[in-house]
Design a protein around this nucleic acid. Sequence first.
DNA 1: ACAAAAGTGTTTTAGATACACCCATGG
DNA 2: CCATGGGTGTATCTAAAACACTTTTGT
Lengths: 241, 241
Amino acid sequence: MDKFRTGDYIAQLSIDCVIFGYKNKELKVLISKLSYGKDLWSLPGGYILQTESIDQAASRILMERTGLDNIYLEQFRAFGGPDRIIGSGYREVVRAGLKDFDPKKFDDEAIDWVTNRFVCIGYYALVDLNKVDPKIGEFEEFLKWVSIEDLPEMTHDHNTIVGEAHKSLRQNLDEKLIGFNLLPDEFTMREVKELYEAVYDKEFPMNNFQKKILGLDVLERLGKKYTGAQNRAPYIYRFKS
Amino acid sequence: MDKFRTGDYIAQLSIDCVIFGYKNKELKVLISKLSYGKDLWSLPGGYILQTESIDQAASRILMERTGLDNIYLEQFRAFGGPDRIIGSGYREVVRAGLKDFDPKKFDDEAIDWVTNRFVCIGYYALVDLNKVDPKIGEFEEFLKWVSIEDLPEMTHDHNTIVGEAHKSLRQNLDEKLIGFNLLPDEFTMREVKELYEAVYDKEFPMNNFQKKILGLDVLERLGKKYTGAQNRAPYIYRFKS
DNA sequence: ACAAAAGTGTTTTAGATACACCCATGG
DNA sequence: CCATGGGTGTATCTAAAACACTTTTGT
């Protein structure tokens, strides 16, 4: 990628993505360890090309990181609080780290561009964690799925952003039937229930939960899942598109 | 105000405000007639100072237009669709209009700044319409309260923005008890009901509506309102802060 | 036959809606 | 005392929650 320039990208405006996944009964978020500085974590993000809409930018950024197209994606709010204005605790360490990391690409002008005050637009994405093969961005050492319960402290206000994304997800999960984006193509009712329990951090009784989900009439029943366990085999379901 | 410069304001990022008011059983929006071009209408908006948060910017813009402090204000979403990118139908007419309007202030640089591609962050505000004495901005001929039912076609995607604001208002009205911001300090139950009917464009039976609102336990009953009509005098209520 | 968990039916409760009635006010 | 709309109580309906029970599977 070339140097960041205002001719190509909108300055002072970024997109941050909260990528949700689900595994081992836990709601997880994909976060990145930055390759400069030490112990700096952040959300995957990027900038907006002059020629694309913000939704397109978010899709593109997600495509670059996950390799997945047609991901469920939702804008949930913009962040432009005082902790994003000049003087944020991370600014100087990031500037030093960038310069150290690649002095050619990050000349003074580029460092100014990247570490300027930013407003960011938050998007959250729901993906089938097993289908994702995370690709690191250019400032990143590695990407990692972390349970939403034990996220590290991240740069800027990224912890707040995850919190808001989580809140928004909870509000939309019921009414928009988006939860199935977090599951594999085929799943059992118990898995759906456990997903909901992970999102709401609250238990649901199986029978009532099943009644409610089946009542939505969005699932089709396929066969049975014989696990070898000494109990009745659960049905396998698929989401009716 | 000085010429718009990136040094002072964030470039390519604006705030547009949907200011809701309520009168004559109608939900109204404050819109402005632009003073250049002909028959151009838009939402009141502004830019973000480098030194302020986006919430502060929205409050400031609202203060400048309504003279009111402590207004109920909520960010509802950001807009950066393709109709906001270069080539929008209004771009050329706006450029010509600006140049014509004030050639000194709007030199080529300033016109470029103002008519560049913009991403905007939408806020909606709820105000007591009677308390507002609208003040025109510098490109505006006058401001006007218009029923949300018969808004004119506005520049850019401002009609879409109002639609989204209205949707967001409907979602929040119930759970956040924000509707009282649209009413005078003192009001009758019938007025509350009619406000809700205006927002939802749907009728509510009086007795059940009253039961629900009083059940929220947020109103205090003051006296009675003797209108001179030959019927029982309704109670006057006030919102318990 | 038994343990474990899936799956389904019935009762209970709570909240919303519909219906019916009485009350205050001014002419 | 009557017309008008304000105000309140009761019955009905519906959907969620609680409870109880049967069925399937592998050992």
